[in-house]
Amino acid sequence: MGYSRFDPAIQARAAWNAGKTVGTKRPLTQKHSWAIGFHLDRKGWLRDKALFDLAIDSKLRGCDLVKIKIGDVVAGADVRTRAIVIQQKTSRPVQFELTADVRATLLSWLERRCGSITDYLFPSRIDHAGHMSTRQYARLVDEWVTAIGLRKSEYGTHSLRRTKAAMIYRATGNIRAIQILLGHTKIENTVRYLGVDVEDALLLAERTEI
């Protein structure tokens, strides 16, 4: 059964998005990233630190991040410098880098987590053979951003996906590179994702001398 805006009963119903912040979530700044990393280190939450660091470096959607297996990031006894996964949304591969600090955190987590290359990197709390749920990942992100004084209504799992991409774009202005890193099929999607507008274009032009 549907509802009409002309029904008397509907007048008292609050809109689904009443009081909520909708739209694209903000990327974290470098200062925010450092603050969350420091908070997780201070708490000794090694799994959360590994998850956070990997989320920033990989720039993956939450649904892809939680399904990463140990074998995706490990080669022999070492953590890979680059990894590749097949995206759930597009069924296309996307490659990402793993920086030295992130590799060190992942190695520490793997030494504690143990497991084989076919096991999920971040197991479920309920089914240890399964992977962490996207809902659990989202709850953790809410805790992290709240812990450093940010509003969880303005940040989410997509904030972590956008963080490094936004920093690279601001440093280089190379939208095509960001498209590849995010695994977008169309560059128009990348433009919308970054929120590129006329002001951005003008700033890039002003920084370029001929």
Score class of each variant (00 low, 15 high):
Asp78Thr: 10
Met1Asp: 09
Arg47Cys: 09
Leu40Lys: 03
Asn174Ala: 11
Leu181Ile: 05
Val94Asp: 02
Ala35Cys: 03
Gly195Leu: 12
Gly37Leu: 02
Leu60Asn: 01
Ala9Asn: 11
Ile180Asp: 08
Met1Val: 11
Trp144Ala: 02
Phe6His: 12
Gln30Leu: 12
Thr190Glu: 07
Arg82Ile: 10
Gln95Glu: 15
Ala14Thr: 12
Arg139Ser: 14
Cys63Arg: 02
Glu209Thr: 14
Thr24Ile: 06
Val73Tyr: 01
Arg170Ile: 06
Thr24Lys: 09
Thr118Ala: 14
Ala166Asn: 10
Thr185Val: 15
Ala35Glu: 10
Leu106Gly: 07
Asp53Thr: 06
Lys164Asn: 06
Val196Phe: 07
Asp7Lys: 05
Gln88Glu: 09
Phe96Arg: 03
Thr172Asp: 05
Thr90Ile: 08
Ile126His: 11
Gln11Asp: 13
Ile180Phe: 07
Lys20Gln: 11
Ile10Tyr: 11
Glu143Gln: 15
Gly37Glu: 10
Glu199Ala: 15
Asp197Ile: 11
Leu60Glu: 03
Gly195Thr: 12
Asp48Ala: 08
Ser4Cys: 07
Trp16Arg: 09
Arg176Ile: 08
Thr163Gln: 06
Val141Asp: 00
Arg176Gly: 07
Thr185Arg: 14
Ala147Phe: 02
Arg125His: 10
Arg47Tyr: 03
Phe96Ile: 06
Arg13Gln: 12
Asp57Gly: 02
Asp142Trp: 05
Phe52Glu: 04
Val79Thr: 07
Lys49Arg: 13
Arg13Val: 15
Ala166Val: 09
Ile180Trp: 05
Val145Thr: 04
Arg139Lys: 14
Phe52Val: 06
Val22Ala: 00
Ser108Glu: 14
Ala83Tyr: 05
Asp197Gln: 11
Thr81Ala: 10
Pro123Leu: 06
Arg162Asn: 00
Ser133Arg: 02
Val74Tyr: 03
Arg170Trp: 08
Arg80Phe: 03
Leu54Cys: 05
Asp142Gly: 10
Asp78Ser: 13
Arg139Gly: 08
Lys67Asn: 07
Ala201Asn: 09
Ala100Phe: 11
Ala138Ile: 02
Val141Cys: 03
Ile84Glu: 15
Gly173Met: 09
Leu203Lys: 15
Ser124Phe: 01
Leu65Met: 04
Tyr155Gly: 02
Ile148Glu: 03
Glu206Gln: 15
Asp101Ala: 13
Ser159Cys: 06
Val141Met: 02
Arg80Gln: 09
